[in-house]
Design a binder for these strands. Structure first.
Lengths: 347, 347
DNA sequence: TCAGTATACTGAAACGTTACAGATTGCCAA
DNA sequence: TTGGCAATCTGTAACGTTTCAGTATACTGA
């Protein structure tokens, strides 16, 4: 009789991974009781609970994820969906670390779900939802009318977007205030006497493209400056393209004396283009740029910089998804971070 | 009787995720047969096999990962273990994309397992192995005597290291030939008349620190040049520290006229330090640097560059782990990639 | 004709977990 | 004394998969 219970498990020597059955055997309790004791269920006696938890800690019991997942459907996985070609480099590492920081003391794992240029961005999201591979999803490159957000909302899977949507639907997001960034950049350039400004936009189609353009245009209305159209360029073009087009622009008769750039990599290309045209940064033209890691001031100290913290984005997005999973109202999980001041080189 | 089989599953309207049971019901076969038919087991009739696979494809059957994992122990997960503070930024995104590319058409998912400065690097690896969270592991920041590699080898879990070890143990790795890089850099600098060279080393303790130093020193022996010690600096220090120390060094009487730098971010700092000391790149001093993304030539066109492809590292490491999981000999899964030539700015 | 065997299929059990529906005990009110 | 009830604990089933040990059928050779 007794041997029945033990015939597999009490091979303690073999050092197999402990399961609820192991704990049940060690404590002399039933598997069910052990399970409930570990999750502080109300109908378990205080002493039993403590005893079970003590033993569990001692032998290093860890719930088997496959068991939980199979039984409950809970995956304990957050998926970060990334475009393998167009994502900003520092974005990837910073956001991963930000998310990691938040989920570090939770049972969650982070899985990265990539998709490539050729794919519909909806594909990876569909895959995740259809296969039930994650409890929560984080997406970037958010669009005003974003099919992915709509889809996940329909399917009822918790998610958070990096960037806002504009569909009249409520969901968690984290965003940088790109309207304020662009407006502040324009004001700063006007303040140092620049009058003809060009904007290097975010990728057309993404929500923050609109925000940025609006901030730029609105602020131009407030100050004594005008726009030099530079519509052929956006930050997800190649360095070479941006550089060439900038050089072309700067060789025209009517050329900008100020740039507002939405990303550090593009800024490198713009400066190169400016210099290709024989002009000098800080003298002939000023550039205000966003950056997410401290490198632009090493590049050219004349650059004017606004910092965007992607690691913060990671933590906020992770918090938002976990919050939604935990039952919080999606509408209460929306954050927009204001840009800091435009900073010039500090000695 | 019939209703027993159907009472849950045939609610086709509800559009629940199909399982083997669903397929069994649809084809009129047993669950076992369906399972075997899907994996081309030999004892299944050719027509049955085709029929099952057709139906499975039509209704979009996907095996439930939790079911498989619970039953077989196979997780279909590869884990990439990363240091959240010291990893090179572009390394993170490139290697993730490289790995993704390889596992894209396999059932594998990529999970990122981070650890922080304060933790023992062995911790995350122990966690993965003890909880059986992955079928294969990729680690970076490899040391000559690496406890993580030793541990995984003992436990028999497939892994690949970015960088080699030197413990007399055989395991898959991918490495960049840093010996050749450093040696070639020295030869190049000597070739353009530089005589007093300083090395900005990789992090002390990592295997490629030794490789780099050896390449540097050995090549110095071949050419008419000597080393200016710069031991207080390595590439995982902060930009500010490297910059300050470089400036100090460059203000000494006996200062280097050439640098070899193991990472792009450090190179930015070194150039800043050089310029802080009032010296000019290309005139007073030359710098050969590794980089993993095309930005250094935008930064200063006088820089001399050797490219290291982290995306390739990602694909090679993924291939190596998958190979080992697939039963290949670990010794056959080792690659070292030669550096390309030192390249100067191309007009 | 019949045993032997290859072919094609099947049910039951198990992986580790949780939910459901009890079961046992002791205590209290009537 | 008894019925009721709260407090604790328990066995069974189920999640979806694969493996084990079959079973049924048809074919083979003598």
């Amino acid at each position: 009789m007794d041997r029945d219970q033990t015939d597999k498990d009490d091979d303690a020597s073999a050092h197999e991974r402990p399961t609820l059955k192991t704990l049940a055997f060690m404590t002399g309790l039933g598997v069910t009781t052990v399970s409930r004791a570990l999750k502080d269920a109300p109908e378990i006696g205080a002493e039993t609970r403590r005893r079970v938890q003590l033993v569990a800690r001692q032998i290093g019991y860890r719930p088997n994820r496959a068991g939980v997942r199979l039984r409950t459907g809970k995956t304990n996985v957050i998926s970060l969906v990334l475009n393998t070609e167009r994502e900003i480099m520092s974005f990837v590492s910073d956001i991963i670390y930000g998310v990691s920081e938040v989920i570090a003391d939770t049972p969650y794992h982070l899985i990265v779900t990539p998709y490539s240029r050729s794919q519909d961005p909806l594909d990876p999201v569909k895959y995740l939802v259809e296969t039930g591979s994650a409890d929560g999803v984080i997406i970037s490159r958010t669009q005003p009318n974003d099919p992915r957000a709509r889809y996940m909302l329909e399917r009822g899977i918790p998610f958070a977007t990096h960037g806002r949507t504009d569909m009249g639907l409520v969901h968690p997001y984290h965003d940088f205030d790109n309207y304020a960034f662009a407006a502040e950049a324009v004001r700063h350039l006007a303040g140092i006497g620049r009058r003809r400004l060009a904007l290097v936009t975010p990728p057309v189609g993404l929500t923050y493209y609109g925000h940025t353009v609006n901030g730029f245009v609105d602020a131009l209305g407030e100050v004594d400056a005008s726009e030099v159209p530079f519509n052929t360029v956006s930050i997800d073009q190649s360095i070479d393209q941006i550089r060439t087009r900038t050089a072309q622009l700067m060789r025209r008769e009517v050329r900008p004396d100020g740039f507002v750039s939405s990303a550090a990599a593009a800024t490198l290309a713009i400066v190169a283009g400016i210099e290709d045209a024989g002009l000098k940064l800080g003298r002939d033209v000023d550039v205000v740029s966003k950056q997410s890691s401290e490198l632009l001031h090493l590049f050219r100290r004349e650059l004017l910089i606004v910092n965007e913290d992607f690691r913060l984005a990671g933590t906020e997005l992770a918090r938002a998804v976990l919050g939604w999973i935990g039952g919080a109202a999606p509408g209460s999980l929306q954050t927009v971070v204001k840009p800091g001041d435009v900073v010039a080189y500090r000695g």
